[in-house]
């Protein structure tokens, strides 16, 4: 009897905490499909706000997706070989490089943005292009890719696999493609999802770096919160949710599968 009461109290507490987090999200989503939020849901349900957001901000949504994919491409092409080199080489220098790559985790996005502006602000065409934001996102997300790939290297004895393939005659790039990458796939996948998710949601750094012509979804979101009616801003949030939640679920799923192996 006493156990049952404790269980019920624990359940209530858990639900309360969950509700504390979920209710605002639910309300926000509801607001995005309500005709008039101040009159409540009885005013009717509509997709007009979603349509309006699409009309106004489709550009930022596409921009975010492209930047996320671009960031992913760069972190894959640079991050995996970097992780491989750092892991195989080892030693003090490798540790130092790893620390430097990881530094953006500890530095506020605003500070990174400021540093980028100070350094490259003078290069007008770079400053005004999407590449500027892409560069910021790569700096911010690279540690996540490198770290998760290195973590998987630590579990598969990369050095032996590499030497094994070499003994059979495979040149370095061939070993990398045939043996290293396939066996690091779980780490690469986990890193990729993290990079895409972080890039899609990144605000601090992007807000500092953007120009009126290079807005991403989160920046557009802030813009709409400040200047649009509440229903439009909420509909915008709804679109963001629809994009990001499948990625989060996939990340969770892959993480669990990784643990089972």
């Amino acid at each position: 009897m006493r156990d049952r009461i404790i269980f019920i109290l624990q359940l209530l507490f858990t639900l309360l905490v969950a509700a504390f987090l979920a209710v605002p999200a639910a309300l926000s989503i509801a607001a995005g499909v309500t005709v008039n939020y101040f009159r409540g849901i009885q005013s009717g349900i509509t997709l007009q706000w979603v349509a309006q957001v699409w009309e106004l901000y489709a550009g930022t949504i596409m921009a975010s997706i492209l930047i996320a994919l671009g960031t992913l491409a760069v972190t894959l092409v640079v991050g995996i070989p970097a992780a491989y080199a750092l892991y195989v080489r080892g030693g003090r220098l490798a540790r130092l490089v790893e620390e430097i790559i990881t530094l953006p985790l500890a530095i506020p996005g605003l500070a990174i943005a400021l540093a980028l502006l100070l350094t490259y602000g003078g290069f007008g065409s770079f400053r005004r292009s999407w590449l500027f934001i892409l560069a910021g996102h790569v700096i911010f997300t690279m540690p996540f890719m490198v770290r998760s790939v290195m973590a998987v290297f630590a579990t598969i004895d990369v050095k032996s696999l590499d030497e094994g393939a070499a003994s059979l005659g495979a040149a370095p790039w061939r070993r990398f493609i045939d043996v290293i990458v396939p066996n690091a796939a779980p780490g690469i996948l986990a890193g990729s999802l993290m990079v895409v998710t972080l890039s899609l949601g990144e605000f601090n750094l992007t807000w500092m770096l953007h120009t009126p012509l290079t807005k991403t979804l989160p920046v557009g979101l802030a813009d709409s919160y400040a200047s649009m009616r509440l229903e439009v801003a909420s509909a915008y949030t709804l679109i963001f949710f629809v994009m990001i939640i499948p990625l989060l679920v996939a990340m969770q799923w892959i993480g669990e599968r990784g643990n089972l192996r």
Binding site: S160, L161, E163, G164, A166, S167, G169, N183
Partner: peptide, 20 residues
């Protein structure tokens, strides 16, 4: 010459088989 150019057959203590 690096190992890949020596045409040696090597059996490692850990075997180094390719799990993929």
């Amino acid at each position: 010459q690096p190992i890949e150019k020596r045409n040696v057959g090597m059996v490692f203590q850990s075997y180094a088989l390719f799990p993929n």
